[in-house]
Amino acid sequence: MIGFLNSYAPLLELALFNALLAFSQYVVLRAGVFSLGTAAFAALGAYAAAILATKLAMPTWLGLVAAFGIGTLAGALVAIPLARLRGVFQALATLALVQIVLSITLNWVDLTEGALGINSIPKTVGLVGMLVAVVVVGYFLAVIGSSSIGRAFDIIREDETVAVSLGISVPKHHMIAFILSGAIAGLAGGLHAYNSYSITPNEYGFNMLVIVLAMVVLGGRVSIWGPLVGAVILTVLPELLRGFQEYRMVVQGALLMVSIVFLPRGVADTALAALRRRRIATAKAKTGTVTA
């Protein structure tokens, strides 16, 4: 068991990091926000944590608080102009945000060490730390999801006209989604910095954006199981395809297209819906025999 854990610990840690990023992407998509800003928020969190640890020798907990804080703040600042815009424009603006952050981390060399990234960050967060973070974030997302906020998210995503006719404020809920997304991604970035010894700007670029989006599209964006399932599949898949390194991108691309066309609700949400249908069907069959 210990041996197994040791040899697979890096992969598990990566899966947990991806799960956190997927949570951040999930929460905006659930609310019908087309934000692609998760990579930017994560970069801010990672750099805040790494700089505090390496340049100022701050303790880990403070670095994580800073990572969480800067992600939250960035989410809130972005939300102010973007909450009133239509989806495509939210996507474009957050994509620009990723580019702006990337360009800052690449060019503000005094602070970020430029393209080389920040190295020799003490590893203070291990597998257990990552796991705790995923469980805590997942728990809060589940609570929020089953509260009136989650219900409002669902209605806004499915039909904005209905939402406003029920008195639901779309900008307010989009703001909440942006802030949650920023906070979760910021924390994820901070944890990753303390978990992986080094960070570089390009980790948090277009590739991360695509992968994280793919996780949630593949997994599903209503239940919190969606991002978890998506993160696990897309972390393990590259390992299985190690022999076909050149075709990895083709497989990812094809997966993205196939799932949006044939499984538009994602693996987890489709499975949950099927399960619910079956439960109702068996319940019906039972009551049917009673009345007969």
């Binding site: 209605i155 006209t161 406003v164 006719s165 779309v170």
Partner: peptide, 23 residues
């Protein structure tokens, strides 16, 4: 705007039904 009116107590149904089908 629409949310303000809804909160003031104006409710409606839609000619073409608009429900959250999965919920």
């Amino acid at each position: 705007d629409a949310p303000t009116l809804a909160r003031a107590g104006v409710a409606r149904t839609f000619q073409n039904i608009r429900l959250i089908g999965d919920a």
